[in-house]
Amino acid sequence: MSKKQLALAIDLNVCVGCSACVTSCKQWNTSGSAGAMADQNPYDADPSGTFFNRVQTFEVGSFPNTEVVHFPKSCMHCENPPCVPVCPTGASYKRAEDGIVLVDYDKCIGCNYCSWACPWGARELDEFKKVMTKCTLCVDRIYDESLDERDRKPACVLSCPTGARIFGDIKDPASDIAQAIDSRNGYQLMPEWETNPANHYLPRDNKNFDQHANADKSKDEEQK
């Protein structure tokens, strides 16, 4: 396991589903090291394009006890990323120094195989460039010394109006993200696949809300 693991924690307790993180990600990355992120049929029927981050919506329960969950999803930067070993070219890799999972567009042959190996659908083939793309954790922002210290954060984190996206090193117990995960019972998605996703989700803080959080966690621990 790497010493440092950068990631996002997403606070479902405050996310209002505004999609700010979706378009800020798009605009930063489309002219960044990800190159252009192509859009197909931009002004025709069925417009679609490459996005690294999408916000989905789920309805939980029945009226009138309905909860609506807005659910942003990007690459989890798994600590044990199944998408990496399957890649035949080595284009997909996990950086040892900070745990970011990246794709080298110059090596990628666009075989899609890594996307089959990601249970979250976090990878999207850019249909124009024909290479695999995914969240880069804004690797070209977070280390850019020409930026102000406070700007060295992913675009989606900077823009999120509710501050629902917390960025940092989950292995550093003093970091905001590690503390948020700890104090708010942050959890991982689909733990059944044992990929150890680095991104965490902070549950709804609502008594009506039957959340994963505590109960499940302790159960898991018992089993171990």
């Binding site: 789920f58 939980v60 329960g61 909860e67 969950v69 659910f71 959890y187 991982q188 998605l189 689909m190 733990p191 059944e192 989700y201 549950p203 709804r204 809300f209 039957d210 959340q211 994963h212 959080a213 109960a215 499940d216």
Partner: peptide
Amino acid sequence: QSAIGVKN
């Protein structure tokens, strides 16, 4: 449920 971490 496991996909979004909600038990309902």
